[in-house]
């Protein structure tokens, strides 16, 4: 297991370089001149543009730019945005907020999703199950921004239980409502996944055998159905952690949160190579680590899965 983990961590190196190179290339290829755009309709003195281009190494070939960037990256210098702020600062501000939001959303969708899915699976065809299916279908088909605005209107504007926007410190209490919105779609998927998995396992031979042993229903479900049903759900959660981190753009927009999604979006619009690539590089690392965690959890849940050294 240790060997396997080590091997997986080593695999991160080529993934890291591949992903950053690719992203860097894509940003480089974006149409438009970011520096010219900075000045809008009033062009600056000709020498100024050249000076700025040289300062950001924009006058050098693509691959040289990339190598300079990567070299700096490993010295802890992530470059500066075109407005002069160090990218490191922007990250230090955006990542903790988004991480809190994503983890809160993950906790909400995992807890309620598995709970509702389990009960629905156990009562297949009954009222609870049908309602759960209808609600989950609704959540999947209605766009996030609609759910976001509705919840914002009801809970923040009408009932006044939460703030309409999140302050710049973004404590957990203020992030609860946005996290709920962010979790809604994945919650629906987890309900369906758990439900299907539970109802499959309920019909498994080993569940019948467990009942024939004289075990109580509670124990049969808790010990023999639940653990087996969690394997596909855990896989989904791991992949979802990544999407929650980047996919929060809409939710961050609605609640005015200065998180990762919004920052990347703005940076892409401005063609700020270093900002985009630095953020993506960190995202790639998070993604790979989350997937590794899933694979290890997978093996913990299902002993048949043993990874070769």
């Amino acid at each position: 297991m240790i060997w396997y983990t080590g091997k997986r961590l080593l695999q991160m190196i080529p993934v890291f370089f591949g992903a950053t190179l690719l992203i860097y290339f894509m940003v480089f290829s974006l149409p438009g001149d970011p520096i010219a755009a900075l000045y809008g309709d009033r062009p600056p003195a000709p020498g100024v543009i050249e000076q700025i281009r040289a300062q950001y190494n924009l006058d050098k070939p693509f691959i040289v730019q990339y190598l300079i960037y990567i070299g700096n990256f490993f010295q802890g210098d992530l470059g500066t945005t075109y407005s002069g702020r160090p990218v490191g600062d922007v990250m230090a501000q955006a990542f903790p907020i988004t991480a809190r939001l994503a983890l809160l959303a993950l906790a909400i969708e995992a807890f309620f999703g598995i709970l509702v899915g389990l009960v629905a699976g156990l009562r297949k065809g009954k009222l609870f199950d049908t309602s759960a299916l209808v609600v989950s279908l609704l959540l999947i088909s209605v766009p996030t921004f609609v759910i976001g605005f509705v919840l914002q209107y009801v809970f923040a504007v009408k009932l006044g239980w939460a703030r309409t926007t999140v302050s710049s410190e973004a404590p957990f209490s203020e992030l609860l409502l946005p996290a709920l919105v962010l979790a809604s779609v994945s919650f629906a998927y987890i309900v369906r996944l758990t439900r299907a998995s539970v109802s499959d396992n309920l019909n498994a031979d080993f569940v019948r055998t467990a009942t024939a042993k004289g075990l109580s229903r509670r124990r049969v479900v808790g010990v023999h159905v639940l653990r087996n049903s969690l394997v596909p759900v855990v896989t989904f959660l791991g992949v979802d952690l990544g999407s929650l981190m980047v996919g929060a753009i809409v939710t961050e927009g609605i609640f005015n949160i200065n998180g990762v999604g919004g920052t990347i979006y703005k940076a892409i619009k401005l063609g700020e190579g270093p900002t985009v690539v630095s953020f993506i590089a960190v995202m790639v690392v998070i993604f790979v680590l989350a997937n590794l965690l899933v694979d290890l959890l997978y093996a913990a849940l299902d002993p048949r899965i043993r990874y070769a050294k």
């Binding site: 080993f206 019948r208 055998t209 467990a210 653990r227």
Partner: peptide
């Protein structure tokens, strides 16, 4: 039961 392959829970 009949089938020894499927009647024991694989995860315990």
């Amino acid at each position: 039961p009949q089938d020894p392959m499927s009647n024991l829970n694989p995860v315990w």
